[in-house]
Amino acid sequence: MSIRVSFNQAWDGRADCLNCTIRSSALFGGLTEDDFKQMHQPVDQLILQPGDVLYKMNDTGHHLFTVRSGLMKLVQYLPDGTQRIVRLVCSTDVLGLEVLVGERYEHEVVALRETELCRYPVEAVDMLSQRNPVLHKDLMARWQKALTEADAWLTRLSTGSAKKRMANLLLRLCEGECDTACVLFSREDIGSILSMTTETASRTISEFKRQGLITEIRHNHFNLDVAGLQKLIEG
């Protein structure tokens, strides 16, 4: 579903942007009213369902996106067609930064949960970043965040034993939410994230259940023994 909103509507709150819970940390959080008055292209508000594709790898990029809520996976494909999930993005993250310096998206982006996004024309973001030093600095910070996330992905989720990789993923999924709450997705996706087979992912989750490290509240919704998972990682 898509709702088109003008930049003036975004400023004065007619699109509920004024009361958006992530407004201060979203991409345009530092813009002034004068900045918004210079804009003539609309913002689109999107709602994607699990499995919906936002864009595909090598698509020509015309927009950047801010995630308002939900969870999405960034996928790249190996020559044999095998998918590798290279990053997860959630609330306040920005997608499509690469089209500010190139023409095409570098990943396929797929919703893992119901996800709300705001879509901005890349020309508008580029123009505003030249006019507004706050936005320019914020874009640089988001580039750095993406690099830091990539480093963490390599060090925590792609190396070590299957149990340690799984524990790291579970703890990362509960960051920014309730201290001990975690919502999982398909075992195939978990295997792709952690460089393990679907069977190994399923066995590891089952073992964590038996050990009391995770408790399933309802399907794929878990409470975590955070201290126990941390001890496993450090052991």
Rank of each mutant, 00 (worst) to 15 (best):
F7T: 09
W11I: 05
L18G: 00
T21K: 10
I22Q: 11
A26P: 05
T32L: 15
F36R: 01
Q41Y: 07
V43N: 01
D44H: 06
L46F: 15
L46K: 11
L46Y: 12
I47Q: 12
L48H: 05
G51D: 01
V53H: 10
T60Q: 07
T60F: 09
H62P: 00
F65G: 15
K73C: 10
Y77R: 09
V86M: 08
R87I: 01
V89S: 01
C90D: 08
C90T: 15
C90L: 00
T92K: 11
T92R: 11
E103S: 10
Y105A: 05
E108D: 04
L112P: 04
E123N: 12
A124W: 09
V125E: 05
V125C: 02
D126G: 09
D126Y: 15
L128W: 12
S129K: 15
V134L: 11
M140K: 09
A141K: 13
A141Q: 14
R142T: 02
W143L: 12
A146L: 12
A146M: 12
D151Q: 15
R156E: 04
T159Q: 04
G176E: 02
G176N: 09
G176A: 10
E177Y: 09
C178I: 13
T180Q: 06
S186I: 03
S186E: 05
D189T: 06
I190N: 10
G191D: 05
I193L: 15
M196A: 00
T197S: 15
T198D: 07
A201K: 07
K209R: 14
T215E: 14
H219L: 07
G228W: 05
L229N: 08
K231A: 09
L232D: 04
L232S: 02
